[in-house]
């Protein structure tokens, strides 16, 4: 049996001309949901980078957004399917660590991307520094406020690395600007309606709010609606991500600035590194992509639809 398999593998390898080696290179790419445009951009980036190198991609996305049980069973499916390589992000890093460790142990090289999935022998990590993004965008707001004022924070999901690191970044920035007071820091689960309602509630207690920091665009957009409905549209709101809808809000002056968390680029770089690793190149162990501050002055670049964007040039081998 094993001999038959080996013969088949050999036959396919011989049959395929060297340039079309990619025919067996199916990459399994995980993402957390089908609703957040950030992940839509990421999947388009993965597809584009893989297509450029002639590899195929199979996406694994829970049908219920961020559903841990479904994401975990998809991880098991991928262990069974045994793809050439995988791009992995966890919906819940702790719950999925054993699964991804099994996947790596089964001989599939795995690149961890988007956010850190815990301690496993990944080929490489591709992401952005959430702490730095949080700190940079908070400082941008604080400096806009002249270093003084009362600010509200809308957090993501407590316990998610993305949410926690961003919040630590906001708090670190506040420590550097003693004139800034954090009035309230409340969770809104990275979602629009919870952010809108949290903002409505916090406004009840604080007749004056000088600025709002949201840990992601969807929450910033919810907060913007709440502020506008209360006649406080002049309160500056900052955010992290840079999905097209939020960049339009920057253009229209409804959001002051966004720290770029670029799913498209993360997808591009992660897929590129995974495929080059498969082809025997030494790729960097960690790539932290820088994030720009998107303001009215420079926002045009982020209004381009994901499908029309081009992947950045490949990161050099090590």
């Amino acid at each position: 049996m094993r001999r038959v398999t080996a013969a088949l593998v050999l036959a396919t390898m011989l049959a395929a001309p060297p340039t079309a080696r990619a025919a067996d290179e199916t990459i399994a790419a995980f993402s957390k949901n089908q609703v957040d445009p950030h992940f839509e951009g990421l999947r388009i980036g993965v597809d584009q980078a893989a297509a450029a190198l002639g590899a195929t991609v199979r996406h694994y996305v829970p049908t219920r957004p961020n559903n841990i049980a479904e994401a975990t069973s998809q991880l098991e499916d991928v262990v069974a399917a045994h793809p050439a390589a995988a791009l992995f992000m966890a919906v819940d890093a702790r719950a999925q660590l054993p699964g991804v460790q099994r996947l790596i142990a089964s001989g599939v090289p795995v690149v961890n991307y988007n956010d850190r999935a815990g301690d496993a022998p990944f080929v490489s990590y591709v992401g952005q520094d959430d702490f730095a993004l949080g700190k940079a965008i908070a400082l941008h707001l604080f400096d806009h406020l002249g270093g003084r004022g009362g600010v509200v924070i809308l957090e993501g999901v407590r316990g998610s690395t993305t949410g926690d690191d961003r919040r630590r970044g906001f708090e670190a920035a506040a420590r550097e600007r003693p004139g800034i007071r954090i009035l309230a820091s409340q969770p809104a689960n990275f979602q629009r309606l919870p952010a809108l309602q949290a903002m409505e509630n916090i406004m009840q207690r604080y007749p004056r709010i000088d600025g709002v920091i949201a840990a992601a665009d969807a929450m910033a957009l919810g907060a913007v609606e709440a502020l506008a409905a209360a006649g406080r549209a002049n309160v500056p709101v900052v955010s992290i991500n840079g999905v097209p809808e939020a960049v339009e809000a920057v253009r229209d002056g409804r959001i002051l600035a966004i720290a770029e968390f670029n799913g498209f680029r993360i997808g591009c770089v992660a897929a590129n590194l995974a495929i080059r690793h498969l082809r025997g190149e030494n790729v960097p162990r960690e790539v932290l992509l820088p994030g720009a501050i998107i303001t009215r002055a420079n926002m045009a670049e982020w209004l381009v639809p994901f499908a029309q964007r081009r992947c950045p040039p490949p990161i050099p081998a090590t």
């Binding site: 949901n33 609703v35 219920r64 979602q191 629009r192 309606l193 919870p194 809108l196 609606e225 809808e245």
Partner: peptide, 16 residues
């Protein structure tokens, strides 16, 4: 009422 309040629709909006 949701559309009026939130001013946006996405495929996961009712989940919470």
């Amino acid at each position: 009422v949701y559309l009026g309040r939130v001013n946006a629709a996405e495929a996961g909006l009712g989940d919470p």
